[in-house]
Write a protein that binds this DNA or RNA. Sequence first.
RNA 1: GGAUGGGUGGCCGAGUGGUCGAAGGCAGCGGUCUUGAAAACCGCCGUACCGCAAGGUACCGGGGGUUCGAAUCCCUCCCCAUCCGCCA
Length: 425
Amino acid sequence: MLDRKFIVDQVAAVKKNCEDRGMSADVDRFVELDGLCRDKLNEVQELNRQANEVSKSIGKAKDDAEREARKEEGRQLREAKDAAQNEHDQMAAELLQIQRQIPNMAHPDAPIGKDDKANLVVAYGKTEVPKFDFKPLDHVELGEKLDLFDFPAGAKTTGQGFYFLRNEAVLLELALQRYALDILMAEGFTPTTTPDLARNDVLEGIGFNPRGNETQIYSINNTDLSLVATAEITLGGSLAGETLSDEQLPLKLCGISHCFRTEAGAAGRATRGLYRVHQFTKVEMFAFTLPEQSDAMLMHIRDLECRIFDGLGIPFRIVDTSTGDLGAPAYRKFDLEAWMPGRGDAGEYGEVTSTSNCTDYQARRLNIRYKKKGEKGTTFVHTLNGTAVALSRAIIAVMENYQQADGSILIPETLQPYMGRTKIG
RNA sequence: GGAUGGGUGGCCGAGUGGUCGAAGGCAGCGGUCUUGAAAACCGCCGUACCGCAAGGUACCGGGGGUUCGAAUCCCUCCCCAUCCGCCA
């Protein structure tokens, strides 16, 4: 969420930003209530001060009569304070509710537009889109021929949108993970495996909403836990409530987790095969930085995503996400879209990674701060996240781009050492 | 699941009704000394909020209660650790 003072000081900018992002929040009400709430806080504090004074004077009372009189005075002051406090708390709760609905400010260079049609292609990867002298298959058909997936079994045991990987698809998934991990470790990311469940308040701190009809989140009955939609949730939450030293930053982590998404409302939208599934595995990057480091860190993470896909020899483009398509916590977001020859009539780009600079939006909700050596006070850190490899979609990209006329699939050179073979089929 | 022990400032750790925002230590900052550094010694040193400031208010896991007054007493919830049982 945004800083209270910032909202009040920059009402016009905050409202414009809500509009650009197609989100609604009652900013005017927030500003009005903020003033009232502050006045009430002052009243509470004044009553408290008086009550404290009375309390202190009781020990010094010269006789019982005066002591009793002072006690009574104290009682009344506390009562008045409690009443004022209640009013204040009510206003504060409403304020927080509005404050949480206000999205992060967007980067001034982020394209303005109401949905993904306004996204801007800003660059392409090193690999050319492949030209086939045969009709390329999609990953579902390839997988069927090579016995790499079992969708019916996934549907039977669990439901539509679940799947089994089989044979070389398993090796490919593991190889991709290890390939990405090696690149990230060399760049100073601490490799971690993370819980696949997280507390709901952590989900909310990161910006997910675990409840409601529209939720993308599976929750565990009779607990306050949900299945994570990404390791971003647990990696970001891992430092909730902590105050770091500025010397620790930037802090770079990568985490491997399963990701669970209900995909509510997404039925029928490009759902074939592995593209949109309810469970997949992902290697995620996460960084905690000083405010002045986050712009550069976003580019660093973006570069790593490019390196990973360039290294795989997969064609892709980079998209600068428009304001209307940014999630509430994101200040700026870049997606990598890989070329998928089997998609659509003659191939299409499909999103494979996404990296966001969330500035201090998540940190403020999760209360993650840093302290500068020798300086007074604390400041919220900036948080960033980015996909290293979403395995389900990376598998699609590898299979479809590396398919051969005979239906076999070559393994990208960089993966061969991890895979222990050069082709499938 | 059972049994115990715990949750206090950046960290460790005292503190069982007022004079406690909290001893002591570590870390940090400033200084003395030193050619410089280390050591030693002296001083400063929690966070958030309100306020131009002076200053004030709150915070000792969360919530509630007792009291004029709670880190301290009571209730309740949460979390953590260790051991036992079960188990990959």
